[in-house]
Design a protein around this nucleic acid. Structure first.
Length: 499
RNA sequence: GCGCUCCUAGCUCAAUUGGCAGAGCAACGGACUCUUAAUCCGCAGGUUCUGGGUUCAAGUCCCAGGGGGCGCACCA
């Protein structure tokens, strides 16, 4: 760890300044002075700051690459001109420095800052991996993202894209007069989805609480309260397994619009994805996994029976005899549980055989009522609900509903969930009396969406693993210290932190 | 939780179907007045994830544990 010996910053520890004013970004310099000819000086003195990621001392001249978050520029030091040149030569890869000098182009054609003065800003005691190949070890990249961000060219791009996407989502909704709101993350009942929650304890109330699995029920209460268009972007938490598409905490966008139905909301999803694609790529035709992907609205709409037939060649229909559909499911290798309705079996077939094969954007409809306890019955098919799942690259990226607004029907659905829960389904919903009381005040027809922000980011950044779009994905903790090991590893710190 | 698979120097990777644990980069010491993954000389660096076992001999084979990846299950 201390194998790097005496470094520049350590030589000048007492002189590390409290601030350094950079007048221009490193990448901006290379853009703004691209016109300089080899050997030409600009006459302009700039101040730049960043990390030294390459160093090429060469006797009485020295070169270094200074990188900041705008890009990189070469520093050019001369023994006869640069202050403290001997120390400049000893700068270690990864050290932060600030430099002042004229923008020039070297005789060999590299745009540079000809360093007059410079100051050490931080010392890098640890390296940043192979300077050419970076760090490939995904465990290091995820556990020590700060290393990944420096070691791997382009590692920041996906996160910058993510920020643009989230900003675009807000812009699109704000332009439609939606109100952004925040609702509780700590909830006495974890409702709004079928999932196992993380639980915690509220000492002051002597009550167990749960981290939300969805904000849905609270947002609907705001619609009942007269906030006709609301949305929330935030973390949901689900106590479930990890996978390339699942992290226990993930970012969800939920939006609700009074007087709208699921078709209106499907159009909203198309607009959100369209605008985000434009924000990141300037186009709705992008590439994913080496394959072209056209996100241009409007998207195709299809029922799951249609899609099953396209993918498997097998015909199933709601009107068919249950035993016949069950037999087809078994033939396709899909298990059928006793008591499952025809619609539920078709849904199972779709999930197991078809969904992952769908590439282009498609709005999938035809969801059976029993898998959608918060959704309004389909206006033409009483065994279905008005629900659309937009699927892109085989992944569900959103859910779209005509929301269930009838308090009596909602209570019946909750009771069905409660029965399932008693039968052992740990993910079935609990009866939420606060929500039911709210519905009894009258909820207008309302459309709702839930959109997975991480998954949208994956699609728009050509990323196959959700961990790549999260700065700090969930990982098993390492090196857990037990009490009194004397190393000061107590994460709660000393007694001075207690108040 | 189950299955498969991976773990070698700080990083990136080698090591002949079990036979002396290596290279490049980084680090460290030095040379060099226009480098571009600079070059050159020198030097150091290892409980091969951990613990057992088989064997004359284990990075390599077996067992257990830890961590990662993928798949299944659950889900978005």
């Amino acid at each position: 760890m201390s194998d790097r010996g005496d470094r520049v910053a350590r030589d000048h520890t007492v002189e590390i300044p409290y601030r350094f004013e950079a007048t221009v970004g490193a990448g901006v310099v290379t853009d703004d002075y691209a016109h300089l000819a080899p050997g030409e000086g600009s006459g302009v003195v700039v101040r730049v700051a960043g990390r030294v990621m390459r160093s090429r001392p060469q006797g009485k001249v020295a070169f270094a690459e200074l990188r900041d978050w705008t890009g990189a520029v070469q520093l050019f030091a001369l023994g006869q001109r640069t202050e403290n040149f001997d120390a400049f030569v000893r700068i270690s890869l990864g050290d932060w420095i600030g430099a002042v000098g004229e923008v020039v182009r070297t005789k060999r054609g590299e745009l540079s800052v000809l360093v007059e003065r410079w100051v050490a800003l931080a010392d890098a005691r640890r390296g940043f991996g192979d300077k050419w190949r970076g760090v490939n070890d995904v465990e290091i990249r995820h556990r020590q993202r700060e290393v990944d961000l420096w070691a791997n060219e382009g590692a920041r791009e996906v996160f910058i894209a993510r920020t643009k996407i989230v900003a675009s989502l807000r812009r699109t909704l704000d332009a439609r007069n939606y109100l952004e709101v925040e609702t509780p993350i700590l909830q006495p009942l974890a409702g709004g989805a079928n999932a196992r929650p993380f639980s915690t304890h509220y000492n002051a109330l002597h009550a167990d609480f749960f981290l939300r699995i969805a904000p849905e029920l609270y947002l609907k209460r705001l619609v009942i309260g007269g906030l006709e268009r609301v949305y929330e972007i935030g973390k949901d938490f689900r106590n479930e397994g990890l996978s390339p598409r699942h992290n226990p905490e993930f970012t969800m966008l939920e939006a609700y619009q009074a007087y709208a139905d699921y078709l209106d909301m499907a159009e909203l999803v198309e607009s959100l994805v369209h605008d985000a694609a434009i924000a990141v790529h300037g186009s709705t035709v992008i590439s994913f996994g080496g394959r072209s992907l056209d996100l241009t609205p409007p998207w195709r709409r299809a029922t799951m029976t249609e899609l099953i037939e396209e993918v498997t060649g097998v015909t199933v229909a709601l009107g068919m005899d249950r035993e016949e559909v069950a037999g087809i499911a078994t033939t396709l290798g899909v298990e059928v549980a006793v008591g499952e309705s025809t619609g539920k079996i078709i849904y199972e077939i779709y999930e197991k055989t078809t969904e992952a094969q769908l590439w282009g954007p498609v709005h999938v409809t035809g969801y059976p009522i029993e898998v959608s306890p918060l959704t309004r019955v389909h206006r033409d098919h009483p065994e279905l609900v008005e629900r659309i799942t937009p699927v892109i690259t085989g992944r569900e990226i959103a859910e779209v509903y005509s929301e269930l607004v009838d308090p009596d029907e909602q209570r019946r659905r909750f009771m069905e969930q409660a029965r399932a829960r008693e039968a052992g389904d740990e993910e079935a919903m609990a009866v939420d009396e606060d929500f039911l009381r709210a519905l009894e005040h009258g909820m207008p027809p309302t459309g709702g969406i839930g959109l997975g922000v991480d998954r949208l980011t994956m699609i728009l950044t050509d990323t196959a693993n959700i961990r790549e779009v999260l700065f700090f994905p969930a990982l098993r903790p390492l090196g857990i210290h037990h009490e009194s090991d004397g190393s000061g590893a107590d994460p709660n710190g000393g007694s001075d932190r207690e108040d």
